[in-house]
Amino acid sequence: MTVILSYFNYWVVVLLMMIGFYGVIAHGNMDKKLMSLGLFQTSVFIMFISAGKVIGGATPILRDGVALHSNPLPHVLILTAIVVGVATTAVGLALAVRIQEAYGTIEDDLIGDPSHEPEEP
């Protein structure tokens, strides 16, 4: 029980990561794939931020009477990673829109392997 409770954040991370990863593999719909990918990435953000928490530590702002601070660096790193995640989702969604225009669907199963597509004239 203590193993579960004391590492609660990390269990959540593992759970979210696996849900996301499974979704990326299992879903045929490209929007759902992107959502799952977002979940997968977000779980890693939580992992970083959990690592930055110092038990009993205050917010990392310098002021009188506070000696113990949480580590702010993971937050900064994850801000960057969130930007990357947003950009990835944006590019992915833009591609999904273009695929919808070109193929009329964003279901992976209905499109099939592009290499078997007959050559366009």
Binding site: T88, G92, L95, A102, P114, S115, E117
Partner: peptide
């Protein structure tokens, strides 16, 4: 138009790879 599909699949796999590196 097949470039779009190739790019989308590359995006999915590439992001998983990059996230693994981040982990």
């Amino acid at each position: 138009r097949r470039g779009l599909l190739a790019a989308f699949r590359y995006l999915i796999m590439g992001t998983i790879g990059a996230t693994f590196i981040l982990i």
